[in-house]
Design a protein around this nucleic acid. Structure first.
Ligand SMILES: [Mn+2]
Ligand SMILES: [Mn+2]
Ligand SMILES: [Mn+2]
Ligand SMILES: [Mn+2]
Lengths: 220, 220
DNA sequence: AATAATTTTTAGATTTACCTAAAAATAAAA
DNA sequence: TTTTATTTTTAGGTAAATCTAAAAATTATT
Protein backbone atom coordinates (compact mmCIF):
# COMPACT_ATOMS: atom_id res chain seq x y z
CA UNK A 1 0.00 0.00 0.00
CA UNK A 2 1.34 3.39 -0.98
CA UNK A 3 0.72 6.71 0.69
CA UNK A 4 -1.03 9.55 -1.04
CA UNK A 5 2.36 11.18 -1.54
CA UNK A 6 4.05 8.10 -2.95
CA UNK A 7 1.22 7.76 -5.44
CA UNK A 8 1.68 11.33 -6.59
CA UNK A 9 5.39 10.75 -7.11
CA UNK A 10 4.75 7.59 -9.14
CA UNK A 11 2.24 9.35 -11.33
CA UNK A 12 4.57 12.28 -11.90
CA UNK A 13 7.45 9.98 -12.81
CA UNK A 14 5.16 8.09 -15.18
CA UNK A 15 4.15 11.27 -17.01
CA UNK A 16 7.71 12.57 -17.19
CA UNK A 17 8.84 9.19 -18.55
CA UNK A 18 6.54 9.76 -21.53
CA UNK A 19 8.97 12.47 -22.64
CA UNK A 20 12.38 11.40 -21.40
CA UNK A 21 13.69 7.89 -20.80
CA UNK A 22 15.51 8.68 -17.57
CA UNK A 23 13.59 10.95 -15.25
CA UNK A 24 15.72 13.49 -13.41
CA UNK A 25 15.46 14.65 -9.82
CA UNK A 26 15.03 18.30 -10.75
CA UNK A 27 12.24 17.55 -13.21
CA UNK A 28 10.33 15.67 -10.54
CA UNK A 29 10.91 18.47 -8.03
CA UNK A 30 9.56 21.07 -10.43
CA UNK A 31 6.48 19.02 -11.28
CA UNK A 32 5.74 18.18 -7.66
CA UNK A 33 6.37 21.75 -6.53
CA UNK A 34 8.88 20.60 -4.00
CA UNK A 35 12.66 20.70 -3.43
CA UNK A 36 15.22 18.37 -5.07
CA UNK A 37 16.36 17.26 -1.62
CA UNK A 38 12.87 16.03 -0.81
CA UNK A 39 12.74 14.22 -4.13
CA UNK A 40 15.97 12.38 -3.38
CA UNK A 41 14.52 11.21 -0.06
CA UNK A 42 11.36 9.90 -1.69
CA UNK A 43 13.28 8.35 -4.59
CA UNK A 44 15.22 6.24 -2.12
CA UNK A 45 12.05 5.05 -0.49
CA UNK A 46 10.37 4.15 -3.78
CA UNK A 47 13.53 2.33 -4.89
CA UNK A 48 13.58 0.35 -1.61
CA UNK A 49 9.98 -0.63 -2.25
CA UNK A 50 10.89 -1.87 -5.72
CA UNK A 51 8.72 0.66 -7.51
CA UNK A 52 11.52 2.45 -9.35
CA UNK A 53 15.05 1.67 -10.51
CA UNK A 54 17.50 4.25 -9.29
CA UNK A 55 21.18 4.88 -9.88
CA UNK A 56 22.62 7.82 -7.96
CA UNK A 57 22.97 10.95 -10.05
CA UNK A 58 21.48 9.10 -13.07
CA UNK A 59 17.76 9.62 -12.51
CA UNK A 60 15.04 6.99 -12.22
CA UNK A 61 12.82 4.67 -14.27
CA UNK A 62 9.66 2.88 -13.15
CA UNK A 63 9.79 -0.86 -12.56
CA UNK A 64 6.98 -3.03 -13.91
CA UNK A 65 5.17 -2.82 -10.56
CA UNK A 66 5.77 0.90 -10.33
CA UNK A 67 4.42 1.45 -13.81
CA UNK A 68 1.31 -0.60 -13.13
CA UNK A 69 0.63 1.34 -9.96
CA UNK A 70 1.07 4.63 -11.80
CA UNK A 71 -1.25 3.58 -14.61
CA UNK A 72 -3.87 2.60 -12.07
CA UNK A 73 -3.77 6.09 -10.59
CA UNK A 74 -4.00 7.65 -14.05
CA UNK A 75 -7.01 5.42 -14.72
CA UNK A 76 -8.74 6.64 -11.59
CA UNK A 77 -7.91 10.27 -12.30
CA UNK A 78 -9.37 10.13 -15.77
CA UNK A 79 -12.48 8.16 -14.81
CA UNK A 80 -13.26 10.67 -12.08
CA UNK A 81 -12.80 13.49 -14.58
CA UNK A 82 -15.36 11.86 -16.86
CA UNK A 83 -17.73 11.52 -13.92
CA UNK A 84 -17.35 15.18 -13.01
CA UNK A 85 -17.99 16.38 -16.56
CA UNK A 86 -20.60 13.88 -17.73
CA UNK A 87 -22.60 13.48 -14.55
CA UNK A 88 -22.00 16.57 -12.44
CA UNK A 89 -21.76 19.07 -15.31
CA UNK A 90 -18.34 20.42 -14.48
CA UNK A 91 -16.51 22.19 -17.31
CA UNK A 92 -13.36 20.54 -18.67
CA UNK A 93 -11.24 23.26 -17.10
CA UNK A 94 -12.67 22.73 -13.61
CA UNK A 95 -12.04 19.07 -12.98
CA UNK A 96 -8.33 18.65 -12.55
CA UNK A 97 -7.88 19.63 -8.89
CA UNK A 98 -10.79 17.58 -7.63
CA UNK A 99 -9.68 14.54 -9.65
CA UNK A 100 -6.25 15.04 -8.15
CA UNK A 101 -7.83 14.19 -4.79
CA UNK A 102 -10.30 11.56 -5.92
CA UNK A 103 -7.63 9.50 -7.67
CA UNK A 104 -6.33 8.41 -4.26
CA UNK A 105 -9.52 6.75 -3.02
CA UNK A 106 -8.38 3.18 -2.81
CA UNK A 107 -11.38 0.88 -3.31
CA UNK A 108 -11.00 -1.30 -6.40
CA UNK A 109 -14.70 -2.14 -6.36
CA UNK A 110 -15.52 1.56 -6.47
CA UNK A 111 -13.53 2.25 -9.58
CA UNK A 112 -14.83 -0.83 -11.42
CA UNK A 113 -18.39 0.20 -10.73
CA UNK A 114 -17.71 3.80 -11.61
CA UNK A 115 -16.23 2.65 -14.91
CA UNK A 116 -19.37 0.67 -15.63
CA UNK A 117 -21.66 3.52 -14.52
CA UNK A 118 -19.89 5.80 -16.98
CA UNK A 119 -20.23 3.27 -19.81
CA UNK A 120 -16.56 2.25 -19.96
CA UNK A 121 -15.34 5.51 -21.51
CA UNK A 122 -12.20 5.33 -23.66
CA UNK A 123 -11.04 8.92 -23.16
CA UNK A 124 -11.24 11.61 -20.50
CA UNK A 125 -12.58 15.16 -21.04
CA UNK A 126 -9.20 16.25 -22.38
CA UNK A 127 -8.96 13.41 -24.89
CA UNK A 128 -6.47 11.41 -22.83
CA UNK A 129 -6.95 7.64 -23.05
CA UNK A 130 -8.36 5.78 -20.05
CA UNK A 131 -6.54 2.53 -19.24
CA UNK A 132 -8.84 -0.47 -18.73
CA UNK A 133 -8.76 -2.48 -15.51
CA UNK A 134 -5.74 -4.39 -16.77
CA UNK A 135 -3.88 -1.18 -17.47
CA UNK A 136 -4.19 -1.49 -21.24
CA UNK A 137 -5.04 1.39 -23.53
CA UNK A 138 -4.49 2.30 -27.16
CA UNK A 139 -1.59 4.68 -27.69
CA UNK A 140 -3.46 7.23 -29.73
CA UNK A 141 -1.80 8.70 -32.79
CA UNK A 142 -2.10 12.44 -32.49
CA UNK A 143 -0.58 15.21 -34.57
CA UNK A 144 -0.04 18.65 -33.09
CA UNK A 145 -2.15 21.24 -34.89
CA UNK A 146 0.99 23.32 -35.38
CA UNK A 147 2.37 20.57 -37.61
CA UNK A 148 -0.50 20.72 -40.09
CA UNK A 149 0.04 22.43 -43.47
CA UNK A 150 -2.39 24.83 -45.13
CA UNK A 151 -5.32 22.80 -46.46
CA UNK A 152 -4.88 19.94 -43.99
CA UNK A 153 -7.95 19.02 -41.96
CA UNK A 154 -8.77 16.83 -38.99
CA UNK A 155 -10.65 16.45 -35.75
CA UNK A 156 -9.70 17.91 -32.39
CA UNK A 157 -9.16 14.87 -30.18
CA UNK A 158 -6.97 16.11 -27.40
CA UNK A 159 -5.00 18.83 -25.67
CA UNK A 160 -1.50 18.65 -24.24
CA UNK A 161 -2.02 21.46 -21.73
CA UNK A 162 -4.56 21.22 -18.95
CA UNK A 163 -4.40 24.67 -17.42
CA UNK A 164 -7.74 26.31 -16.83
CA UNK A 165 -6.65 29.45 -18.71
CA UNK A 166 -5.78 27.47 -21.84
CA UNK A 167 -8.94 25.36 -21.77
CA UNK A 168 -11.20 28.36 -21.24
CA UNK A 169 -9.50 30.08 -24.17
CA UNK A 170 -10.19 27.10 -26.43
CA UNK A 171 -13.79 26.96 -25.26
CA UNK A 172 -14.29 30.61 -26.14
CA UNK A 173 -12.90 30.01 -29.62
CA UNK A 174 -15.20 27.01 -30.08
CA UNK A 175 -12.24 24.66 -30.23
CA UNK A 176 -13.59 21.76 -28.23
CA UNK A 177 -13.11 18.01 -28.53
CA UNK A 178 -14.71 16.44 -31.58
CA UNK A 179 -14.73 19.64 -33.63
CA UNK A 180 -13.75 19.33 -37.27
CA UNK A 181 -11.09 21.86 -38.34
CA UNK A 182 -9.17 22.85 -41.45
CA UNK A 183 -6.05 24.99 -41.66
CA UNK A 184 -6.73 27.88 -44.02
CA UNK A 185 -3.60 29.98 -43.55
CA UNK A 186 -0.34 30.30 -41.64
CA UNK A 187 0.66 33.91 -41.02
CA UNK A 188 4.18 34.76 -42.16
CA UNK A 189 4.70 37.44 -39.54
CA UNK A 190 4.19 35.49 -36.28
CA UNK A 191 3.47 31.95 -37.44
CA UNK A 192 -0.04 32.14 -36.07
CA UNK A 193 -2.51 29.70 -37.60
CA UNK A 194 -5.83 30.53 -39.20
CA UNK A 195 -8.35 27.73 -39.04
CA UNK A 196 -11.87 26.98 -40.13
CA UNK A 197 -14.18 25.61 -37.41
CA UNK A 198 -17.92 25.27 -37.70
CA UNK A 199 -18.08 27.81 -40.57
CA UNK A 200 -16.09 30.36 -38.56
CA UNK A 201 -12.54 31.54 -39.12
CA UNK A 202 -10.39 31.71 -36.02
CA UNK A 203 -6.80 32.75 -35.57
CA UNK A 204 -4.69 31.05 -32.94
CA UNK A 205 -1.14 31.69 -31.79
CA UNK A 206 1.66 29.18 -32.36
CA UNK A 207 1.66 28.54 -28.62
CA UNK A 208 -1.99 27.52 -28.70
CA UNK A 209 -1.57 25.47 -31.89
CA UNK A 210 1.22 23.49 -30.24
CA UNK A 211 -1.13 22.17 -27.58
CA UNK A 212 -4.08 21.14 -29.70
CA UNK A 213 -3.99 17.50 -30.78
CA UNK A 214 -5.54 16.47 -34.07
CA UNK A 215 -6.47 13.09 -35.43
CA UNK A 216 -5.75 13.80 -39.03
CA UNK A 217 -8.29 12.68 -41.61
CA UNK A 218 -6.57 13.62 -44.78
CA UNK A 219 -3.80 15.85 -46.02
CA UNK A 220 -4.08 17.65 -49.33
CA UNK B 1 -8.28 23.97 6.70
CA UNK B 2 -8.26 20.78 8.71
CA UNK B 3 -6.29 17.64 8.08
CA UNK B 4 -7.91 14.33 7.32
CA UNK B 5 -7.21 13.27 10.90
CA UNK B 6 -8.59 16.40 12.51
CA UNK B 7 -11.78 15.94 10.52
CA UNK B 8 -12.16 12.38 11.76
CA UNK B 9 -11.74 13.53 15.34
CA UNK B 10 -14.37 16.24 14.92
CA UNK B 11 -16.82 13.80 13.40
CA UNK B 12 -16.24 11.29 16.18
CA UNK B 13 -16.72 13.93 18.87
CA UNK B 14 -19.90 15.06 17.14
CA UNK B 15 -21.36 11.56 17.14
CA UNK B 16 -20.36 10.89 20.74
CA UNK B 17 -21.91 14.20 21.75
CA UNK B 18 -25.26 12.89 20.53
CA UNK B 19 -25.19 10.53 23.52
CA UNK B 20 -23.28 12.31 26.25
CA UNK B 21 -22.96 16.05 26.85
CA UNK B 22 -19.28 16.00 27.73
CA UNK B 23 -17.21 13.75 25.52
CA UNK B 24 -14.48 11.86 27.33
CA UNK B 25 -10.95 11.14 26.20
CA UNK B 26 -11.33 7.37 26.53
CA UNK B 27 -14.52 7.31 24.51
CA UNK B 28 -12.80 9.16 21.67
CA UNK B 29 -9.81 6.84 21.87
CA UNK B 30 -11.99 3.77 21.63
CA UNK B 31 -13.99 5.12 18.70
CA UNK B 32 -10.90 6.27 16.81
CA UNK B 33 -9.05 3.03 17.55
CA UNK B 34 -6.16 4.91 19.05
CA UNK B 35 -4.63 5.55 22.47
CA UNK B 36 -5.88 8.06 25.06
CA UNK B 37 -2.48 9.78 25.01
CA UNK B 38 -2.86 10.45 21.29
CA UNK B 39 -6.34 11.79 21.90
CA UNK B 40 -5.06 14.26 24.47
CA UNK B 41 -2.51 15.52 21.94
CA UNK B 42 -5.15 16.06 19.30
CA UNK B 43 -7.62 17.56 21.76
CA UNK B 44 -5.11 20.26 22.61
CA UNK B 45 -4.63 21.07 18.96
CA UNK B 46 -8.36 21.24 18.22
CA UNK B 47 -8.86 23.44 21.30
CA UNK B 48 -6.07 25.77 20.12
CA UNK B 49 -7.82 26.03 16.77
CA UNK B 50 -11.06 26.96 18.49
CA UNK B 51 -12.92 23.89 17.30
CA UNK B 52 -13.61 22.42 20.73
CA UNK B 53 -13.88 23.64 24.31
CA UNK B 54 -11.64 21.72 26.62
CA UNK B 55 -11.10 21.66 30.36
CA UNK B 56 -8.41 19.29 31.54
CA UNK B 57 -9.78 16.03 32.89
CA UNK B 58 -13.34 17.18 32.12
CA UNK B 59 -13.74 16.10 28.51
CA UNK B 60 -14.62 18.24 25.49
CA UNK B 61 -17.54 19.86 23.69
CA UNK B 62 -17.64 21.18 20.14
CA UNK B 63 -17.68 24.94 19.59
CA UNK B 64 -20.07 26.39 17.04
CA UNK B 65 -17.37 26.30 14.35
CA UNK B 66 -16.34 22.80 15.34
CA UNK B 67 -19.92 21.60 15.17
CA UNK B 68 -20.47 23.14 11.75
CA UNK B 69 -17.32 21.52 10.44
CA UNK B 70 -18.38 18.16 11.83
CA UNK B 71 -21.85 18.44 10.32
CA UNK B 72 -20.32 19.25 6.96
CA UNK B 73 -18.28 16.05 7.07
CA UNK B 74 -21.35 14.05 8.07
CA UNK B 75 -23.20 15.62 5.14
CA UNK B 76 -20.49 14.53 2.73
CA UNK B 77 -20.30 11.05 4.21
CA UNK B 78 -24.01 10.48 3.82
CA UNK B 79 -24.30 11.98 0.35
CA UNK B 80 -21.48 9.75 -0.88
CA UNK B 81 -23.24 6.75 0.66
CA UNK B 82 -26.36 7.61 -1.31
CA UNK B 83 -24.28 7.91 -4.45
CA UNK B 84 -22.69 4.51 -3.89
CA UNK B 85 -26.01 2.78 -3.29
CA UNK B 86 -28.27 4.62 -5.74
CA UNK B 87 -25.87 5.07 -8.63
CA UNK B 88 -23.17 2.44 -8.28
CA UNK B 89 -25.40 -0.33 -6.88
CA UNK B 90 -23.45 -0.96 -3.72
CA UNK B 91 -25.34 -2.72 -0.93
CA UNK B 92 -26.06 -0.75 2.24
CA UNK B 93 -23.53 -2.83 4.14
CA UNK B 94 -20.70 -2.13 1.70
CA UNK B 95 -20.56 1.64 1.63
CA UNK B 96 -19.20 2.74 4.96
CA UNK B 97 -15.46 2.34 4.44
CA UNK B 98 -15.42 4.01 1.04
CA UNK B 99 -17.56 6.90 2.30
CA UNK B 100 -15.11 7.20 5.17
CA UNK B 101 -12.50 8.18 2.58
CA UNK B 102 -14.70 10.17 0.22
CA UNK B 103 -15.99 12.42 3.01
CA UNK B 104 -12.60 14.15 3.10
CA UNK B 105 -12.56 15.37 -0.50
CA UNK B 106 -12.65 19.09 0.04
CA UNK B 107 -14.34 20.75 -2.94
CA UNK B 108 -17.54 22.55 -1.94
CA UNK B 109 -18.64 22.73 -5.58
CA UNK B 110 -18.34 18.96 -5.84
CA UNK B 111 -20.64 18.24 -2.95
CA UNK B 112 -23.25 20.79 -4.03
CA UNK B 113 -23.38 19.27 -7.48
CA UNK B 114 -23.42 15.75 -6.12
CA UNK B 115 -26.35 16.71 -3.88
CA UNK B 116 -28.22 18.01 -6.91
CA UNK B 117 -27.28 14.97 -9.03
CA UNK B 118 -28.76 12.72 -6.34
CA UNK B 119 -31.95 14.78 -6.16
CA UNK B 120 -31.29 16.38 -2.76
CA UNK B 121 -31.87 13.22 -0.72
CA UNK B 122 -33.08 13.66 2.85
CA UNK B 123 -31.69 10.42 4.27
CA UNK B 124 -28.77 8.07 3.64
CA UNK B 125 -29.02 4.31 2.99
CA UNK B 126 -29.19 3.67 6.73
CA UNK B 127 -31.97 6.17 7.32
CA UNK B 128 -29.70 8.82 8.82
CA UNK B 129 -30.70 12.39 7.94
CA UNK B 130 -28.55 14.35 5.46
CA UNK B 131 -27.85 17.94 6.53
CA UNK B 132 -28.50 20.52 3.82
CA UNK B 133 -25.78 22.92 2.66
CA UNK B 134 -26.48 25.15 5.66
CA UNK B 135 -26.11 22.25 8.05
CA UNK B 136 -29.79 22.01 8.81
CA UNK B 137 -31.72 18.77 9.06
CA UNK B 138 -34.81 17.50 10.79
CA UNK B 139 -34.13 15.61 14.00
CA UNK B 140 -36.14 12.54 13.18
CA UNK B 141 -38.29 11.02 15.90
CA UNK B 142 -37.42 7.34 15.97
CA UNK B 143 -38.47 4.65 18.40
CA UNK B 144 -36.34 1.58 18.92
CA UNK B 145 -38.16 -1.54 17.83
CA UNK B 146 -37.40 -3.06 21.22
CA UNK B 147 -39.59 -0.43 22.83
CA UNK B 148 -42.72 -1.40 20.89
CA UNK B 149 -45.45 -3.40 22.64
CA UNK B 150 -47.28 -6.38 21.17
CA UNK B 151 -49.67 -5.11 18.54
CA UNK B 152 -47.74 -1.92 17.82
CA UNK B 153 -46.85 -1.31 14.21
CA UNK B 154 -44.63 1.06 12.24
CA UNK B 155 -42.17 1.51 9.42
CA UNK B 156 -38.47 0.70 9.50
CA UNK B 157 -36.77 4.03 8.93
CA UNK B 158 -33.30 3.58 10.30
CA UNK B 159 -30.66 1.49 12.02
CA UNK B 160 -28.37 2.47 14.87
CA UNK B 161 -25.67 -0.06 14.01
CA UNK B 162 -23.78 0.09 10.74
CA UNK B 163 -21.70 -3.06 10.88
CA UNK B 164 -21.76 -5.18 7.77
CA UNK B 165 -22.70 -8.27 9.77
CA UNK B 166 -25.75 -6.60 11.27
CA UNK B 167 -26.94 -5.08 7.99
CA UNK B 168 -26.54 -8.34 6.08
CA UNK B 169 -28.53 -10.09 8.79
CA UNK B 170 -31.38 -7.60 8.43
CA UNK B 171 -31.29 -7.96 4.67
CA UNK B 172 -31.64 -11.72 4.93
CA UNK B 173 -34.64 -11.33 7.21
CA UNK B 174 -36.22 -8.87 4.79
CA UNK B 175 -35.97 -6.06 7.33
CA UNK B 176 -34.96 -3.21 5.07
CA UNK B 177 -35.77 0.50 5.12
CA UNK B 178 -39.36 1.37 4.34
CA UNK B 179 -40.75 -2.02 5.34
CA UNK B 180 -43.97 -2.02 7.36
CA UNK B 181 -43.81 -4.17 10.51
CA UNK B 182 -46.02 -5.18 13.39
CA UNK B 183 -44.97 -6.76 16.67
CA UNK B 184 -46.90 -10.00 17.15
CA UNK B 185 -45.22 -11.40 20.25
CA UNK B 186 -42.45 -10.91 22.77
CA UNK B 187 -40.96 -14.18 23.99
CA UNK B 188 -40.91 -14.53 27.78
CA UNK B 189 -37.82 -16.72 27.86
CA UNK B 190 -35.24 -14.49 26.10
CA UNK B 191 -37.14 -11.32 25.32
CA UNK B 192 -36.79 -11.95 21.59
CA UNK B 193 -39.36 -10.21 19.42
CA UNK B 194 -41.64 -11.81 16.88
CA UNK B 195 -42.69 -9.49 14.10
CA UNK B 196 -44.82 -9.53 11.00
CA UNK B 197 -43.13 -8.25 7.81
CA UNK B 198 -44.50 -8.61 4.31
CA UNK B 199 -46.79 -11.48 5.41
CA UNK B 200 -43.90 -13.36 7.00
CA UNK B 201 -43.24 -13.95 10.66
CA UNK B 202 -39.68 -13.38 11.77
CA UNK B 203 -38.09 -13.68 15.15
CA UNK B 204 -35.30 -11.32 16.14
CA UNK B 205 -33.13 -11.16 19.22
CA UNK B 206 -33.33 -8.28 21.68
CA UNK B 207 -29.91 -7.17 20.49
CA UNK B 208 -31.17 -6.85 16.92
CA UNK B 209 -34.42 -5.19 18.01
CA UNK B 210 -32.43 -2.54 19.89
CA UNK B 211 -30.81 -1.33 16.70
CA UNK B 212 -33.82 -1.13 14.40
CA UNK B 213 -35.45 2.29 14.36
CA UNK B 214 -39.15 2.61 13.74
CA UNK B 215 -41.30 5.56 12.84
CA UNK B 216 -44.37 4.54 14.70
CA UNK B 217 -47.69 4.88 12.95
CA UNK B 218 -50.04 3.81 15.64
CA UNK B 219 -50.09 1.95 18.90
CA UNK B 220 -52.95 -0.27 19.86
C1' DA C 1 42.47 19.11 -19.27
C1' DA C 2 41.28 22.54 -16.05
C1' DT C 3 37.70 25.50 -14.49
C1' DA C 4 33.02 26.86 -14.00
C1' DA C 5 28.17 25.85 -13.84
C1' DT C 6 24.60 22.73 -12.92
C1' DT C 7 22.56 18.87 -10.84
C1' DT C 8 22.12 15.82 -7.19
C1' DT C 9 22.92 14.18 -2.71
C1' DT C 10 23.87 14.49 2.34
C1' DA C 11 23.38 16.56 6.95
C1' DG C 12 20.64 18.28 10.20
C1' DA C 13 15.89 20.22 11.45
C1' DT C 14 10.83 20.67 11.60
C1' DT C 15 5.89 19.21 11.68
C1' DT C 16 2.13 15.87 12.11
C1' DA C 17 0.25 11.96 14.04
C1' DC C 18 1.24 8.38 16.38
C1' DC C 19 3.24 5.33 20.37
C1' DT C 20 4.67 3.37 25.50
C1' DA C 21 5.46 4.03 30.21
C1' DA C 22 4.90 6.64 34.13
C1' DA C 23 2.79 10.42 36.82
C1' DA C 24 -1.23 13.05 38.24
C1' DA C 25 -6.08 13.83 38.85
C1' DT C 26 -10.63 12.17 39.56
C1' DA C 27 -14.08 8.81 40.91
C1' DA C 28 -15.52 4.67 43.41
C1' DA C 29 -15.17 1.45 47.27
C1' DA C 30 -14.05 0.14 51.74
C1' DT D 1 -12.22 9.37 54.95
C1' DT D 2 -8.63 6.65 53.50
C1' DT D 3 -7.59 3.34 50.06
C1' DT D 4 -8.17 1.52 45.51
C1' DA D 5 -9.42 1.75 40.80
C1' DT D 6 -10.09 4.38 36.72
C1' DT D 7 -9.30 8.10 33.75
C1' DT D 8 -6.47 11.46 31.91
C1' DT D 9 -2.31 13.78 31.15
C1' DT D 10 2.78 14.33 30.68
C1' DA D 11 7.34 12.88 29.19
C1' DG D 12 10.02 11.19 25.85
C1' DG D 13 10.29 8.82 21.25
C1' DT D 14 9.27 7.07 16.37
C1' DA D 15 8.15 7.48 11.37
C1' DA D 16 6.67 10.12 7.23
C1' DA D 17 7.29 13.99 4.47
C1' DT D 18 8.98 18.10 4.23
C1' DC D 19 12.70 21.98 4.50
C1' DT D 20 17.56 24.84 4.16
C1' DA D 21 22.38 24.91 3.69
C1' DA D 22 26.39 22.76 2.36
C1' DA D 23 29.05 19.01 0.10
C1' DA D 24 29.76 15.92 -3.80
C1' DA D 25 29.20 14.39 -8.49
C1' DT D 26 28.29 15.31 -13.17
C1' DT D 27 28.19 18.17 -17.26
C1' DA D 28 29.53 22.16 -19.93
C1' DT D 29 32.82 25.74 -21.17
C1' DT D 30 36.99 27.72 -21.82
MN1 LIG E 1 -6.38 16.13 -14.83
MN1 LIG F 1 -7.54 14.84 -17.99
MN1 LIG G 1 -21.33 5.27 7.19
MN1 LIG H 1 -24.79 5.91 6.79
Amino acid sequence: MQSYTEENYLKTIYHLAEKTINVQTNAIAEQMQTKPASVTDMIKKLADKGLIDYIKYQGVTLTETGKNTAIDIVRKHRLWEVFLVDKLNFKWDEVHDVAEELEHIKSIELIERLDEFLGFPKADPHGDPIPDKNGRFAKTQFIKLIELKVGDSGTITGVSQHSSAFLKHLEKLGLTLGKQIQVSDVTDFDGSVEIQVSDKQVNISREVAKHILISSNGKN
